[in-house]
Design a protein around this nucleic acid. Structure first.
Lengths: 226, 226
DNA sequence: TTGTTTTTTCACATTTTTGTCATATTTGCC
DNA sequence: GGCAAATATGACAAAAATGTGAAAAAACAA
């Protein structure tokens, strides 16, 4: 597998050096930027950056600004470097598409582990055949679903629908989209049939059925929070 | 991606020609206006102008005047063409909603780069999915709203209405416009129902509810000043 | 074919949202 | 201040969307 290229954005030269050393030692290639504007320039100039480590506090354009700019046109994984214990920041960030946080100060081990975890999550192999969230494991090849390790039977349509939910975790899915993606394009029935399937899936998922949220006036959303 | 249409407003015929040539060569389509009044006319007549390049010094109605007029009802990106080194101008402009400055004289490269950067910023992917102002973050994809990091529930209509406000931040929205944009065209109820929804949104926004200003005799305006 | 399973429809209960209305309050204007 | 018009608010009713169980229809297998 080709080495991943990582951009490190931090205004402190010392911090950049430390991170660069850790990552280089671990086989990554590294690009540095010392402020937000430089980060954007380099990101746009260099199209094969696989992940960005982004400090929040920076002159000119801070980490949030960079994040927002980049998220307008790229889903490149971004890890924010944040000062200890600012939790409101974290909430804001997840909404804006932050993949992970690392709290300063951090150990080399943590840094490398997080970077690798995020890369695995975002560009992992086989991620199309096996879906996994919150104890629900769907194997698209064998068509087997387990919930907390116990096998549960799903009919064809139920399986397709649940897979569609998991593939779009966290996204509010309008009924029309669900029909277009899970049913054939030549289906002209009621969209209420979705409700019936959702009912069955929820009951088969047992306790975890609540993760299929109803979005009133829109459709459904799979989300593993209570 | 469809070519963007750009309006060039400058009283010097030579300058218009130069800019027009640069932009056309780069694949944009160009509309010219030779003074402020013509600019307004053409802008209102032609609804699909994507960006305006606006000279400040002009007869009849100068750049600031045009800017202010347009900003009353549109957020179309505007780049001001300014003489070298007038920094007080720049401050004024950003307050009035200028997206970018280009200092004369400029190179073709700068011109095209700035235009493209602004377009990327304003019409990039995802820029439609996340709205953010003053600690209010609306994610259209997940249908989640957070206020200062805390999730707040909004019903379908409330969500649509708040999104419409944020998309038109700073612009006074007549009730009729709100109905046309947020309600279906086949809605024939009272327009006072907007008031009721505004009431609910304000209360859900808590402290920040005051940012939805009442424009007496017209409608409402979302504005993050006290 | 017959019997079984899956998918869809339907009717009714339930929940949530949306719109209306009456009343209170505010605003602009004389 | 006082008046008229516009807006704010709370309560409530109407409307719309969803949940649910059962039955009909369709697909499938033997």
């Amino acid at each position: 597998m080709k080495k991943s290229k990582i951009m490190v954005v931090d205004d402190e030269q010392r911090m950049r050096k430390i991170i660069n050393d850790f990552l280089t030692k671990d086989g990554f290639s590294v690009v540095e930027a010392c402020d937000g504007e430089e980060a954007l320039d380099k990101f746009y100039a260099d199209s094969d950056i696989d992940l960005i480590l982004l400090d929040i506090m920076m002159p000119k354009l801070d980490g949030w600004g960079v994040l927002k700019e980049i998220r307008k046109e790229s889903k490149v994984p971004i890890i924010m470097l944040t000062a200890r214990g600012d939790e409101s920041d974290e909430l804001l960030g997840f909404n804006l598409g932050v993949d992970e946080y690392i709290t300063k100060p951090f150990s080399p081990k943590i840094l490398v582990a997080r970077v690798e975890a995020v890369l695995r999550r975002t560009q992992g192999v086989g991620s199309k055949d096996i879906l996994e969230t919150a104890g629900i494991v769907m194997n698209k090849l064998t068509h087997v679903v387990t919930v907390d390790g116990k096998a549960v039977e799903f009919s064809y349509k139920e399986f397709e629908l649940l897979a569609y939910f998991l593939e779009n975790e966290g996204i509010a899915l309008p009924r029309a989209n669900i029909l277009n993606n899970v049913w054939n394009y030549d289906y002209y029935g009621e969209d209420r049939t979705i409700d019936t399937h959702v009912k069955k899936i929820r009951s088969k998922l047992g306790e975890k059925g609540k993760y299929i949220k109803t979005i009133w006036g829109i459709g459904y959303k799979f989300e593993t929070v209570d």
